[in-house]
């Protein structure tokens, strides 16, 4: 499988992203945990403003891949180039990339000892070096955006799961990232809270954010994704638009997966 296979031309809602610049480029990325190979020669290119949903059975390496992109995991072979910067062991590159790539975790991972507002302003103040007043103003706007402006003075432990995850999204957005990574953002939520988080993510996609989303929410994938990447056993099996993917997938393994979950 070569890289051009994975590049798209037309997309959902007829958006044409073929001229958009590449923002994430993975070339032959492999990763091992001990002897176990978690990623096998992953190659993919993601364009600016594109929304990519990564699907695959449990243990297929989705989290591992997405975490390699902001170097929470280290790949051992191949290249990952984010926004023109190659990810190496150089700490300064990594910190630069991390401040441009926002990440939302399955378990929210809010800072429990800080108020909601401080959760959102901490990184802008100390990493982006924003004046405090500006950071607070921005935090208020972001909390408005995710729909919980009235919770700013509470602590994470006092919020519901859905509210916590929305704070986590606001926290990531406060760094004004160019890319947002989501690793199963709704898997730890009660069903009635999933929608409020997905709505925020849909708004974000509409606003033109580049997004890479690992999720089991097929509705979200159908509605929002420009492209779906299906993984199994550390490899990319199939790539395509939602229509292609859900109506006539080519690979047998994809068909099997879809028959199991739909």
């Amino acid at each position: 499988m070569n890289e051009t296979d994975n590049t798209i031309t037309t997309t959902r809602s007829g958006r044409d992203l073929s001229d958009a610049p590449d923002i994430i480029v993975c070339k032959g990325v492999s990763k091992w945990y001990g002897d176990f190979q978690a990623l096998e020669k992953i190659s993919a290119t993601i364009k600016e403003q594109e929304v990519v949903v990564v699907l695959g059975p449990s243990g297929s390496g989705k989290s591992t891949w997405i975490r390699c992109i902001n170097r929470l995991e280290h790949h051992q072979e191949g290249d990952i180039i984010v926004d023109g910067v190659e990810l190496t062991n150089d700490m300064r590159n990594i910190e630069k990339i991390r401040s441009e790539v926002g990440m939302v975790f399955q378990q929210f991972n809010l800072f429990p000892h800080l108020s909601v507002r401080d959760n959102v302003t901490l990184a802008p103040i100390w990493v982006r070096k924003k004046p405090k007043a500006e950071a607070i103003e921005q935090a208020n706007e972001l909390l408005e955006l995710v729909g919980i402006p009235e919770q700013a003075d509470k602590f994470p432990g006092q919020l519901s799961g859905g509210q916590q995850q929305r704070v986590a999204i606001a926290r990531a957005l406060a760094m004004e990232p160019r890319i947002m990574l989501f690793d199963e953002p709704t898997s730890a939520l009660d069903p009635e809270m999933i929608k409020e988080v997905l709505d925020v993510m849909k708004d974000l996609a509409r606003s033109g954010m580049t997004m890479m989303v690992v999720t089991h929410e097929m509705g979200f994938a159908k509605e929002v994704a420009d492209r779906i990447i299906f993984m199994e056993e550390g490899q990319i099996v199939e790539v395509g638009t939602p229509e292609h993917f859900f109506t006539n997938p080519t690979e047998d393994r994809t068909k099997l997966f879809l028959s199991q979950i739909l």
């Binding site: 902001n70 929470l72 700490m91 910190e95 630069k96 991390r98 401040s99 790539v101 926002g102 990440m103 975790f105 378990q107 991972n109 809010l110 800072f111 901490l122 990184a123 100390w126 990493v127 926290r171 990531a172 760094m175």
Partner: peptide, 18 residues
């Protein structure tokens, strides 16, 4: 302190000392 806390701090670009 959980691994998630470390990762969340790293993911927003904090240096090790921060």
């Amino acid at each position: 302190v959980t691994r998630g806390q470390h990762e969340a701090a790293e993911a927003v670009g904090m240096s090790t000392s921060q």
